[in-house]
Design a protein around this nucleic acid. Structure first.
Lengths: 106, 106
DNA sequence: AACTTCGATATCGCGACGCGATATCAAGAT
DNA sequence: ATCTTGATATCGCGTCGCGATATCGAAGTT
C-alpha cells in the first residue's frame, strides 16, 4: 500500500461526512457533490461517488427524489432524520479527533 | 450496508490518524493503541489493528523496533518524518472538515 | 416517431481492505 | 522441556474503492 493510497483512506470518511452534511442542508445530486467536494480538495470518481450515494440511501441516511434540470434527469438526495443523527454523531467524533490531535500540539 | 457499518466507515480514517498521532509522540505498540483508542470510544479488533500497523509501516509512515516488556515481546512503532508529514496533512484536512461541517452550523 | 447527442447516473472487474476467528510466537514459571 | 499467557500475526469471506465502461433519458433534428 502506497502512502498516497493510505492518505486517501484517512479521508474517505471525511468525504462521506461532507456528503451527509450537504444533503442535510439542501437537496444535492451527484454532480453537485463532485464539484463541491472538489472545492474542498477532494476528488471522487463516479465509480466511488454513486455507489456511496446508493449505500447512504440504502442505510436510510439519504432520501432520493428525481428531478429534471436543463433537460437532464438528476437524482437529488436529502438527509433523513436518521442521516442527520448520524451526521451529529460524526460531528461529535470529529470534535473529539480535533481535541486529541490538534488542540494539544503545543 | 447497515447504518452501523456505514458509521464505522466514517471513523476508520479518524482511527488511523489517531494512531499516527500517538506514534508521533511516543513509541506505541498494538495493545497500547487498542487501549488508548478504546478511551476515545473506538474499538479496533486485532484483525484490523495489526494489518493497519503493518500497512503504515510498509508505507514508510511508521518505523518498528522490538522491545521486551514484562517478559512479553512487543513491537513498538514511532512515526517517521514521512509519517509526521502525512499526519500534518491529515490535520489540515481535519481542520477543513471542522470549518465546513461544524463551525457554520448556527 | 426514430435517430442523435450528451450530460448524468449506473455498473463491472479486480485489487485491496475490515475484521472475527484462529493460529503463532516468545519469555517466564514450574 | 513443557505449560502458560500476553502479544502479535494470519486466514477467509464479505465488502469497498475506483478507473473504465456502459446505460439512461430529455431535448433537438429530421
Amino acid at each position: 500500500m502506497s502512502g498516497r493510497e493510505l492518505t486517501r483512506e484517512f479521508f474517505l470518511g471525511f468525504i462521506k461526512l461532507h456528503i451527509l452534511h450537504h444533503a442535510a442542508q439542501e437537496p444535492v445530486c451527484g454532480v453537485d457533490l463532485a464539484e463541491e467536494l472538489g472545492r474542498h480538495g477532494y476528488e471522487l470518481s463516479p465509480g466511488t461517488l454513486y455507489p456511496t450515494l446508493h449505500a447512504l440511501n440504502r442505510a436510510g441516511y439519504l432520501k432520493q427524489h428525481d428531478r429534471t434540470v436543463h433537460g437532464r434527469r438528476r437524482k437529488y438526495y436529502v438527509a433523513t432524520d436518521a442521516g442527520s443523527a448520524a451526521l451529529e454523531r460524526g460531528k461529535a467524533q470529529a470534535r473529539e479527533l480535533i481535541r486529541e490531535i490538534l488542540d494539544n500540539d503545543d
